[in-house]
């Protein structure tokens, strides 16, 4: 599902955020990405989301070779992936419900019952009574759950989540992880960055460790 070959990302002249990364993640795998602050986790996700380009190296995700991605293909590539951004990236002028349903509006598949699907997910992340609220009036943890629901609603092949439980209490973190495991059982590939080492014990899964932009560990928790 994700194939990284000799990825380097250098900002400016000598800020090396990623160095010679080689990572293979197969379809259906559940992989954690850990590492101290500044290790390069968000940078790696930016490359995967086709938001930035690696300085050198090849990236292939979901069958798309990102180096030769055409202008018009980018949206269709991104639809295969669900992103939970570290800063959530919710739309302030849309309600919780409108934010969550947005990926379905964009894909515009007439056979899907959009609002039913959105309500179900909001229920699962425990936000069904906040559906008409605007993000500015939500707590950090609530906003984070909206971002999670939005990333999952279109049943993506791959879910990339940057610290999805950073603002959640232990109980809620565990509930979200259970939701992830459910989707994982249905075949979704997960790539989740986290600082929360407790999460790694919830399930036997692969853990990749980054430090100063280099891959320093690849093990099963």
């Amino acid at each position: 599902m994700i194939h990284l070959k000799h990825i380097y990302k250098t900002y400016g002249a000598n800020r090396h955020a990623l160095r010679d990364l080689n990572i293979q993640i197969e379809k259906g795998e559940f992989t954690f990405l850990v590492g101290p602050s500044g290790a390069g986790k968000t940078t790696l996700f930016k490359l995967i989301s086709a938001y930035e380009k690696p300085t050198t190296g090849d990236i292939e995700v979901a069958g798309y070779s990102l180096n030769s991605l055409k202008l018009g293909q980018t949206p269709f590539y991104r639809r295969k992936i669900g992103f939970v951004f570290q800063d959530y990236k919710l739309l302030k002028n849309k309600t919780v419900f409108q934010n969550v349903v947005l990926p379905l509006e964009i894909i515009n598949n007439k056979t899907i019952d959009k609002s039913k699907q959105a309500m179900e997910l909001l229920e699962q992340v425990g936000l069904h009574d906040l559906q008409d609220q605007y993000p500015d009036f939500l707590s950090g943890g609530e906003q984070q759950r909206v971002a999670i629901a939005r990333a999952l609603i279109h049943n993506p092949e791959l879910l990339v989540a940057d610290e999805p439980t950073g603002n959640l209490d232990p109980k809620m973190s565990e509930a979200i992880m259970q939701l992830f495991f459910e989707f994982s059982k249905k075949g979704t590939t997960f790539f989740v960055a986290t600082h929360d080492y407790r999460l790694l014990t919830l399930k036997n899964s692969r853990v990749l460790e980054l430090n100063k932009g280099e891959l320093v560990g690849d093990r099963i928790s």
Binding site: P75, F76, R78, F85, K89, L90, L91, L102, I107
Partner: peptide, 16 residues
């Protein structure tokens, strides 16, 4: 601008 960025990150086409 931020809205445009977000829309595009979750797969909106230019037309959308």
């Amino acid at each position: 601008k931020t809205e445009i960025e977000v829309l595009s990150l979750i797969g909106a086409t230019r037309w959308f």
